[in-house]
Nucleic acid binder design. Sequence first.
DNA 1: CATGTTATGTTATGTTATAACAATCGTCAA
DNA 2: TTGACGATTGTTATAACATAACATAACATG
Lengths: 165, 165
Amino acid sequence: MLTTAFSPHDHSHCITTAINHAQDLCADRSVRLTPVRQRVLELVWHSHQPIGAYELLASLAKEGFNSAPPTVYRALEFLSEQGLLHKLESINAYVGCCNPDTPHQGHFLLCQACNQAQELDSQYITLALKHSAEQHGFEIQSHTIEIVGTCQGCLDKSKAVEYKI
Amino acid sequence: MLTTAFSPHDHSHCITTAINHAQDLCADRSVRLTPVRQRVLELVWHSHQPIGAYELLASLAKEGFNSAPPTVYRALEFLSEQGLLHKLESINAYVGCCNPDTPHQGHFLLCQACNQAQELDSQYITLALKHSAEQHGFEIQSHTIEIVGTCQGCLDKSKAVEYKI
DNA sequence: CATGTTATGTTATGTTATAACAATCGTCAA
DNA sequence: TTGACGATTGTTATAACATAACATAACATG
């Protein structure tokens, strides 16, 4: 079994790492990780679940940031362009990306029980997509791969309940 | 090369077939393909591109149907439950399903040039998803697989233009 | 320090989708 | 054949998600 977002872990460490990483990466690329942008990234990482734009906006408002929609959408756009987060199209929510150095679009496992998301970057899936596209003479530019279901931890919990009955 | 939505074809034939099929299928299942529901399905099929709920609503309004959003969303929900259409999450639009008999969620190729969609049901992709999910002890319930790019026909056209320069 | 560029503020609106409750239609048994 | 029930549709309102357009401010750099 691999380590995933679904497994228990020290999430504050994830956040710190992600933010430091983002700072370095933005410095390298000479783009500005401004206060709003950094704060949005922190909030996205701080949430254990994919988070929506308006929820982010509410948090920003509480903290004294400007709270009109364009503020958060601009930050999300910037972070997305820099590969620092991904949008989950099927639920209109955003998650931090663990591997922003190499541009990519991930494949996601979404648990409907705990509402957490795990990013994958499966070569099997990538190859299968390529293969299917080639069969149709189709040239791939981007993709949305979101798998909804139940994660290991939630399956274990529901089994535990079952046995106690 | 396979035959696809992208290839030229007699689309009115597609529509007729799809509607007849839907009528039979609803009769078999003892569910009601009411006038609005059938009209929405026809409109979805009539469009050569995935179509949005509010565009459907505008067409219904012109034809004297009730034109409040719940009308079209209810019809879409019904048709979706019966497997007669699919929603494309990444563009909030709907397409008819060619194979509504066996419940499934398709894999889609979306051409950004001609805005057409082609449904696939690739065993490669299905197996790759299963494999990745298993690696994480994840139980799949549903998925969203949408591949954006350029279809064969549009690639050919752009190449033709290139050569003429 | 002026000037262009990038980022943010602000107002308004567009787009997609659902909640909640009332009215109507279809069906089928008494 | 009617009345009772569930399914469907009508209606009003609003929630949830996202962008247009233009004004202002911050910044970097020649």
